[in-house]
């Protein structure tokens, strides 16, 4: 029975990892084919840096993920504090609206934002879909994720703390930065990380809200899929995958060493 369980887990893991392994293996393939192996090479890795379209897409992907999650964190955190102070009916309505981008299918979010931009551009014919609309769209859906991860922390917080700070002469800004923000920080950080990941991984919303010539990695991969994805993309994904693994390992290690320290202190 125990062997059967292990075998089952192994099969599921093979199912999950086979495509990833193949992707990594073909990043070392000497020919451009995704089907036939024709010898080992590192040339795709070497050529990666000289491919302007891939480098541009990588730049767009990373800057949009960083900027949109940073802007959304600011908007979302202040919004959450504001929402928490609303009356119960308005609060319910605002929360329902905030939930829409999370629950709505990506494709509907994508087309509705595209329709919005093109509608606005009718009045400003010089504007076009592109980097700015891509950034705005990512910020738009990320803001909801931030609000939804900050709100539970705000609810856990003692509301008297902020009022006590004001009574003791703190300005509202001081109250926010010195009392509220430290309390809700875990929610803000979780939200920011979630937003960064959502942006990095997004294809559908980006696909509808970008203009010609502005790609992120997902759009570039999609446009290549019909003709065959260039192995340079495999090489880049392998590298990004490794970076993520190392980061996750480091985060985990610092977490567990922190936990160890804490338990040592408690003892």
């Amino acid at each position: 029975m125990k062997a059967a369980k292990k075998l089952y887990l192994a099969l599921i893991l093979i199912f999950m990892y086979a495509p990833i392994l193949i992707l990594i293996i073909f990043s070392f393939n000497a020919s451009k084919s995704r089907a036939n192996w024709s010898g080992f090479t590192l040339s795709w890795y070497a050529e990666l840096i000289n491919d302007p379209s891939i480098m541009k897409a990588l730049y767009n992907t990373i800057t949009i993920a960083l900027l949109s999650s940073a802007i959304a964190t600011v908007i979302g955190t202040t919004a959450a504090v504001g929402i928490e102070a609303l009356g119960s009916l308005t609060k319910r309505i605002v929360l329902a609206i905030t939930n829409i981008p999370v629950v709505n299918p990506d494709i509907v979010t994508g087309v509705s934002l595209m329709v919005l931009y093109i509608y606005i551009f009718k009045f400003f014919p010089s504007l076009k879909l592109g980097y700015a609309t891509l950034l705005l769209s990512h910020t738009a859906f990320n803001t909801s994720y931030i609000i939804l991860s900050v709100l539970p922390k705000l609810r856990q917080m003692d509301p008297n703390l902020y009022e006590a700070a004001l009574d003791l002469g703190a300005s509202p800004a001081q109250g926010f930065f010195k009392v509220i923000l430290p309390e809700i920080m875990p929610g803000v950080v979780t939200g920011a990380m979630l937003a960064f990941t959502m942006s990095l991984d997004d294809f559908v919303v980006s696909f509808f809200t970008t203009g010609s010539g502005v790609n992120n990695l997902s759009i570039l991969i999609y446009s290549m899929a019909r003709r065959g994805v260039n192995p340079k993309i495999n090489a880049l994904s392998t590298l990004m995958f490794l970076v993520v693994l190392v980061l996750l390992y480091l985060v985990n290690r610092s977490d567990s060493s922190k936990a160890k320290k804490e338990s040592a202190l408690a003892a």
Binding site: M16, I20, D201, I221, Y222
Partner: peptide, 13 residues
Amino acid sequence: VPMWMNFLLRTYS
């Protein structure tokens, strides 16, 4: 971990 690799590329694979 697999979710950290571009899902278009994984599907394409």
